[in-house]
């Protein structure tokens, strides 16, 4: 009997202990609750798009492919972006239902080999009739590149606060650079003896040397210019290097007028054909 009563006591004690343990187990859950809460809160901010981790993953996958598509489409690769907004609406403005917001944006990325960091402010003013957004300050930082033509254009874009012009011209500039590089490479491969790329295919110079007449050399200077309106245009010039002796024999002044003739040729034939005709001119001479 005593032993049974003893067991009842023990069981009661055991139950009490288990209850205590149960309470202890619940306590840390209560403590960590706010931490756990923050996550569902984020998820709930976009309930349609987020249901589970799997959905989140597939949504992220979709966005990433969209990003890849956009960077391919524009050739502009944005790596980081941040935005800060400041409400400048005063109580007086609120009464007139005018909203004034200053946004500060910062983005960095690259367009092929050219990296950039762009910082700008947008002042948004909303009144009853319309919304006006104006870029009030534009700062473009570019890593120094071999493309000196760009620095002048960048300061003009900053001065005019023309962000879109900057990206548009940058795109066309890079497009021309790539075209120039391809063209130079093509001629180097086609006429390895005559064509010389002393500073590589990316430079703006291409030399054409006559192998049979070592003193004769033509240099194509292909610059890519960005004009006032941000339009990108190629500018090609021809430099000649001819021995003094040959110059004296040149009664018609062919060499002297060559740069001008080259311009005419460009206008008529286009860049590739005009340059090729110059190379062949020297090659044919070699064959004689």
């Amino acid at each position: 009997m005593g032993s049974m009563e003893a067991e009842v006591h023990v069981l009661e004690a055991e139950i009490a202990a288990l209850k205590l343990l149960w309470e202890e187990l619940l306590a840390p859950a209560k403590l960590s609750a706010p931490v756990q809460k923050s996550f569902p809160e984020i998820c709930q901010s976009d309930p349609k798009e987020w249901k589970s981790s799997k959905d989140l993953r597939s949504n992220l996958g979709h966005l990433e492919s969209e990003l890849l598509f956009l960077s391919t489409l524009t050739d502009i690769n944005i790596i980081s972006y941040s935005k800060k907004t400041k409400n400048l609406t005063s109580t007086e403005m609120t009464e007139k239902s005018i909203k004034k917001v200053l946004q500060r944006h910062k983005l960095s990325g690259n367009c092929h080999m050219i990296t950039f960091q762009v910082e700008f402010q947008i002042l948004e003013v909303q009144n009853q009739e319309n919304l006006s957004s104006v870029i009030t300050d534009l700062n473009i930082i570019m890593e120094p590149t071999a493309y000196s033509e760009l620095s002048e254009f960048v300061s003009r874009a900053e001065e005019r606060r023309d962000l879109f012009m900057f990206f548009r011209s940058l795109h066309f500039f890079v497009e021309w650079c790539e075209y120039r590089k391809r063209t130079f490479k093509h001629f180097k491969e086609k006429y390895p003896e005559a064509v010389h790329l002393l500073e590589g295919a990316s430079s703006s110079y291409m030399g054409i040397q006559s192998t049979s007449q070592p003193g004769f050399e033509l240099v194509i200077v292909w610059r890519i210019q960005v004009d006032e309106e941000g339009k990108v245009l190629p500018k090609l010039d021809l430099l000649t290097k001819v021995p003094q002796q040959a110059l004296e024999l040149d009664k018609k002044g062919v060499i002297e007028t060559a740069p001008l003739s080259f311009r005419t040729l460009l206008g008529v034939l286009g860049i590739e054909v005009a340059v090729e005709s110059l190379i062949r001119l020297l090659c044919i001479e070699e064959n004689h």
């Binding site: 989140l56 969209e66 956009l70 502009i76 980081s80 762009v118 962000l163 879109f164 990206f167």
Partner: peptide, 23 residues
């Protein structure tokens, strides 16, 4: 993942400042 998604979303929105964006 969530943080990354927000980053990607922000960058996608930033494309409108290049003058060319899309969906």
């Amino acid at each position: 993942l969530e943080r990354k998604r927000e980053d990607v979303k922000a960058i996608l929105q930033a494309y409108r400042f290049t003058g060319l964006s899309g969906k």
